[in-house]
Structure formats: structure tokens, C-alpha cells
Design a binder for these strands. Structure first.
Lengths: 197, 197
DNA sequence: TTTTGCGTTAACAAAAATGTCAAACATTAA
DNA sequence: TTAATGTTTGACATTTTTGTTAACGCAAAA
């Protein structure tokens, strides 16, 4: 047990380091050498465990996808009332965003290079369920009427964009790190107020 | 005159092709060879006109920045009433987004690799002016009260995110190209309704 | 103790991408 | 026409990055 924890699983270490560099720092064209250095291991171990650089990229991509789906599942299949589901989503999202602000951008750039989703069915079934709830909430008059897909886009956009585009936004708004952190911290409330009447 | 137009300015051609590949197709790690092929010119001409690959990247980055600032200027210094300024912004943005959906993501990835803004002062003065207008509009009760910066974030997020993250969103929402196009077309109205009471 | 197998390493090989250069070419000015 | 200048090209050199292999070390099993 204690041995397990002290002794590092190299394969896992490499993967986590890659995630840190990609999702965490947004350095998408990091070389295998840079990843190995950051992990403190010999570069060829990346080949040993992952065969090729591209394979590592694919695996990390799938991990990201799994993570996204998992968050969605946690929310949609919980038995919380709608309003609280959204709140929970925001909590989970901003928590993950601290560690991995560039997760979404990474996925987009990967997809523009040929990667693609593996399992759209699970996601689709979840979405259908969620769209129903959204429609219901519109009936109740709690949120503005629009296509549920648009509400979905609003939700994701309002939360994700300020985080994933931070370098661009922060610089073009001429803000310090601290000032932007405050802005992000206030975001949850702003998003809620914007989405709900 | 007509010769000027038929005869292609190679330097410009290369730059435009690079933009098309980066901002238009999101292929951020395109090689100089790929760019040259797409432009139909000899690869070494990239070195001739731009000295190095990295220099081309920097120049294209600055162009993107200039374009962003120019759009902001057009809006903020126009004498339209607030509501119409926002509408105009949406029009301009979605127009540019058709050609260059990945402009923002490109900038972020570049900035994560060391590029940075050159002229934050111009932008800052524009923003201050715009923040005042936003605050005024809140006083009038036309938009919900919040920090003007947050309104700004809302505006950009709601418009830009669905466009720049399209590959991820479209696939995870299981939509066809056509269906997603419709969604984007409806966006202007949705954003307006979301921002204004 | 020897053997087996996994993880690790360095040295090497191969590939991919960038950059340089001199010669060829075209265009315009003298 | 010739000279001069700027543009384009292919051949070559260099650099960067990736992938392979054989040997080494070490721990657990025989």
C-alpha cells in the first residue's frame, strides 16, 4: 500500500504530465522531450508505454472526452431540481477549470487535426433528457423561451469561454492576474443571473 | 492596373493562405510545406518573404490582433445607440466568423507559446469608453446590473464560443453541419434576448 | 543462486521540417 | 541591348523531433 503510493506508476505519470502541459498550460505543440523532461523520465519511455507520440495524444484526448461526459452524467442523472443542477454544473466546471483551463481548446485543436468523438450515443441520450427538463423550465417561466439547444449553448459559452480564452481576454482587457481571478470568481453568480429570470 | 490585379502579390498570397489555414481551418501546426502547397508556391518563398516560419506566425498573429481591434473601433466609436452597437457588433462578428472561425483560438494558442499583445493602450481607452456606456445602460434599466466587465464577457462569450468551439460542440451535441448552421444563424437573436431585458 | 521478465537507459537510425545558397529567370531602367 | 534589380527555383545543409534497438539493472520467481 505505502509502497504503491511512493513508487510511481510511470505510465500514469507520463499521462498526467501530458495532461498538465496540454490542458493545464495550453502548450499544444510540446515535444515528447519536453513532456518527458516535465515528468522527469527518459524520453523513450513515452515510446515504451505509448508506442508513438500521436498515440499518447489520442489517449489523452479520449481521457478528456471521458472526463467531459462524466461531468455531464453527474449533473443530468442527479435528482436535483433544475436550478440546482445548473449550480452544481457551475461548481464542477469551475473546479476543473482551475486545473485544466484549456481542456476544451485542446479538444477542438485535436479534432481539427483528425481526432473524433467515439461515443456520441451516450451523450445524445443525456442531452435529450436534459432538453426536456429545459423545455419544462421554460414552461414554468423560470428561464427565457428559446430552443433548448440555445439554452445549452448559452450555459456552456458563459462559463467556458472566459476560462479557456483567458490569455486573450485578460490581455485585451488589460487586467492583472489577480483582477481576472476575481472576475472568474464572480462568474458563477453572473451566469446564474443571466440564465434565470 | 489590370496587370497588378492579375499578377498575384506572392507575399500577400502566402499571408492570406496562412490565415486561411490557421484562422479558417484551425490547422495550427501546419508546416511551411503545407502552407506553400496550399498557396501554390515554392516553399522557400516563405523564407524569402518572411525569413522564418516563426516570423510568419508572428506577423499573422499581429494581423489578427489588428483585425480584432479594428472591429472594436468600428463599433465603439460609431454614434449608434447602445442597443444598435451591440447588434452591429454581432453582425460584424458573425460575418468574420464565417471566414475565420478559429481566429480567437489561434490567438490563445499563440499566446500560450509566448506571443503577446503589442498595444494594450488603444484597447484600454476603448474599453473604458464602452464600460461607461454599459453602466449608463444599466442605470436606464435596459440590461441587468453587473460589473461592466462581466457584461462584456457575456457578450463575447455568447457570440464567440459557439463558433470557435464548433467541432467540439457540434459533435458532442450530435448535430449535422446543416443543423448547426441553423443554430448559429439563430444566435444573433438569442444573444440579444439574453443580454437585454 | 540462477533465471525470467519488466522497466529503464543510451546510442543510434530515420524521418520530418526548417533554413541557406547560388543559379536561373523575369522585368524594368538605362 | 545591356545592366540592374527583384523574384523564383532546386539542391543542399542543418536542425529538430521521433522511433528503434540492444544492453543494463533490478526485483521476484524458480
Amino acid at each position: 500500500m505505502s509502497i504503491q503510493e511512493i513508487d510511481i506508476d510511470t505510465e500514469e505519470l507520463i499521462k498526467e504530465t501530458a495532461k498538465k502541459i496540454f490542458f493545464g498550460e495550453g502548450r499544444f505543440k510540446a515535444t515528447t522531450q519536453e513532456i518527458a523532461d516535465a515528468a522527469g523520465v527518459n524520453r523513450t519511455l513515452i515510446n515504451y508505454y505509448f508506442r508513438s507520440r500521436n498515440n499518447l495524444f489520442e489517449i489523452v484526448f479520449e481521457d478528456a472526452q471521458t472526463k467531459e461526459i462524466s461531468i455531464a452524467e453527474q449533473i443530468i442523472f442527479s435528482d436535483l431540481p433544475f436550478h440546482q443542477k445548473i449550480e452544481k454544473y457551475l461548481d464542477l466546471f469551475f473546479e476543473q477549470a482551475k486545473k485544466y483551463p484549456y481542456l476544451e481548446i485542446y479538444m477542438v485543436t485535436q479534432m481539427n487535426q483528425g481526432s473524433c468523438f467515439k461515443d456520441p450515443d451516450t451523450m445524445n441520450r443525456m442531452l435529450d433528457k436534459f432538453y426536456l427538463e429545459i423545455a419544462l423550465e421554460m414552461e414554468k417561466g423560470n428561464i427565457a423561451k428559446m430552443r433548448p439547444e440555445q439554452f445549452m449553448l448559452n450555459l456552456i459559452s458563459l462559463t467556458s469561454f472566459p476560462v479557456s480564452m483567458r490569455p486573450l481576454l485578460q490581455e485585451s482587457m488589460g487586467m492583472s492576474n489577480e483582477a481576472y481571478d476575481v472576475l472568474v470568481d464572480e462568474r458563477k453568480k453572473v451566469v446564474m443571473d443571466t440564465l434565470f429570470k
